[in-house]
Design a protein around this nucleic acid. Structure first.
Length: 500
RNA sequence: GGCCCCUUGGUCAAGCGGUUAAGACACCGGCCUUUCACGCCGGCAACACGGGUUCGAAUCCCGUAGGGGUCACCA
């Protein structure tokens, strides 16, 4: 079946209610790739008027934690990805946490057992490991050879009496072709020949992912499973269970991975991989979302800066690319800068405050004056920021009285002959004003600078550059008429006196 | 190693048998500007390779190479 035909299947799925899900396992923070999967599911649901559900797959008791669950949900909320149903919001298919659905899985496992489609396996980990090693040594695919497949009741009782707790294994049909019609990949065929019977229920009675997700997706009436490509190889195992239980398969769409610079699956080595890390680095949620959407999907038009509703409007699985995408931090920065420039000063101020607090510039509570100062700071730096965290540097440059020229070039500027004259005029201007920080605003600063230029009859650069270096020590930076009010009259005078 | 997926500029990507092979980021140049930045204008740069199919392949098929994923009582 061609991709175009598969696509019409999706679109004509109007007789089936679209229900998709994001099912993270709470074993750490929300990963960038997970966030994209969640986003694609969300977009798909909204596009087709369906429901987006969030389910927690916490069957790995060792690694799962409530804390991680909370963190993941917090990241989703921060990104603006909301869910119609699931953890925290409830719904008609409760519960949405797998460890609270154990009896359900047991029922289906019992059915498979009763029908001979699954069986108890008493092998120990050591035995299994030995088998694996042996196969590897022989150059074969490591897999379970089916030692416990035909255990008699007596043998089982004996093993049981030894204190062995069995797992339940699915009996994989021999030399059977499993065919998947993937919505992004097309037809994919797997041969069960090298698969080996796999565990569906662990010895502690907890189901394994490949089993639990089949049951849940069925019971929760999930229509489309959109997930990362790392699950593609698992899919035949799940498909086999659908078939064995006589369940209707959902449609699948496997989205390619997000890669690091070296083209391997994005991991810690490549830098930040969690959504919180980007949040803490000063990326705006709408920028991250926008960037993630562009990784593996492309809008039909030319515009790449898109709001969530716009993405919903344009989203479709047939515009999802098959090839993996390298995470390009430069592009993220650019997108983030675009959003920072679009953001109102009021919101920008609120967003920036935590960064300034964290840097120790402000305490836990801000005075009205500090807020106003921050707002001015944002006005001064808005279009030169690619990340919120960058304001810290700018703020730090405005604190304290000591200024040193950043380099030789800057030092040289101060040697120019007109400098004393310019400074004298500037000081006069400052001193003629009330020595009250609040009274010095941007229009006043502009007027002052204009006056100096006029009085000294000097060209712009000869006036502005020395002042800039005197006040900041730097050759580049925000507009002087922003810097002066940010420093305040006393701040400016202090810096001038220290330097000259 | 077996199985599976992928292959258009440095990166993201459009393209779905006939195009001068879009666009974006990055990079380079110019303009704007009292600096930098923003913005605007311009430039560099790609169909992995080899066979087919076809009047015609980036587009279809088969190989090769390269990359990736997966092979747990993890998800």
């Amino acid at each position: 079946m061609g991709k175009a035909e598969l696509q019409t299947m999706v679109v004509s799925a109007d007789n089936v209610k679209v229900r998709v899900r994001f099912a993270p396992s709470p074993t750490g923070p929300l990963h960038i790739g997970g966030a994209r999967s969640a986003l694609f599911n969300y977009l798909f649901a909204k596009k087709y008027g369906g429901n987006f559900v969030v389910r927690i797959e916490d069957t790995d008791l060792e690694r799962s934690s409530r804390e991680s669950e909370e963190n993941i949900l917090a990241s989703l909320r921060w990104l603006g990805i909301t869910w119609d149903e699931g953890i925290g919001v409830g719904g008609a298919y409760e519960p949405y946490r797998q460890t609270e659905r154990l009896d359900t899985y047991q029922r289906f496992a019992a059915q498979l057992l009763a029908e001979g489609k699954a069986y108890y396996c008493y092998c120990t980990e050591e035995e299994l490991e030995a088998e694996r090693q042996m196969l590897i040594k022989q150059g074969e695919t490591p897999r379970y050879l089916g030692k416990c497949r035909e255990l008699s009741t007596k043998e089982r009782e004996k093993l049981q009496a030894e204190g062995r707790r069995p797992t339940i294994r699915f009996r994989v049909p021999d030399n059977h072709l499993v065919i998947l019609n993937d919505l992004v990949r097309g037809e994919v065929t797997f041969d069960t020949g090298t698969m080996g019977d796999y565990v569906i229920v662990k010895s502690d009675g907890i189901p394994v992912y490949n089993f639990a997700c089949v049951i849940d997706d069925t019971l929760m009436e999930i229509s489309h499973v959109i997930r990362g490509e790392e699950h593609l190889s698992n899919t035949p195992r799940q498909l086999l269970i659908y078939d064995a239980l006589g369940l209707t398969r959902p449609q699948f769409a496997h989205v390619s991975l997000i890669l690091g610079k070296d083209r391997s699956k994005m991991s810690k080595r490549h830098g930040a991989t969690s959504v919180v890390a980007y949040q803490e680095a000063g990326y705006l949620p709408e920028a991250l979302i926008n960037f993630l959407a562009l990784l593996g999907w492309s809008p039909p038009g030319e515009e790449e800066i898109l709001s969530l509703p716009e993405m919903v409007q344009y989203f479709s699985l047939d515009r999802v690319a098959k090839n993996p995408a390298v995470f390009d931090i430069d592009k993220l920065k650019w997108i983030n800068g675009c959003y920072i420039r679009q953001t109102s000063l009021d919101r920008l101020t609120e967003l920036a405050i935590p960064f300034l607090q964290k840097a120790g510039i402000f305490g836990p509570e801000l005075t009205a004056e500090e807020r106003a100062w921050t707002r001015l700071l944002m006005e001064a730096t808005q279009d030169r920021l690619s990340c919120l965290s960058e304001v810290v540097e700018h703020a730090q440059g405005l604190i304290g009285d000591a200024v040193t020229p950043e380099n030789e070039e800057a030092a040289l500027v101060l040697q120019e002959e007109q400098v004393p004259l310019v400074i004298r005029h500037f000081k006069q201007q400052l001193e003629s004003l009330e020595v009250d920080k609040a009274s010095l605003d941007v229009p006043q600063a502009k007027a002052m600078l204009k006056k100096i230029t006029k009085e000294t009859k000097l060209g712009g650069r000869k006036v502005f550059m020395p002042l800039r270096v005197c006040l900041t020590g730097k050759m580049h930076g925000p507009e002087l008429y922003h810097i002066i009010p940010l420093l305040g009259i006393s701040g400016c005078l202090a810096r001038l006196n220290k330097l000259v």
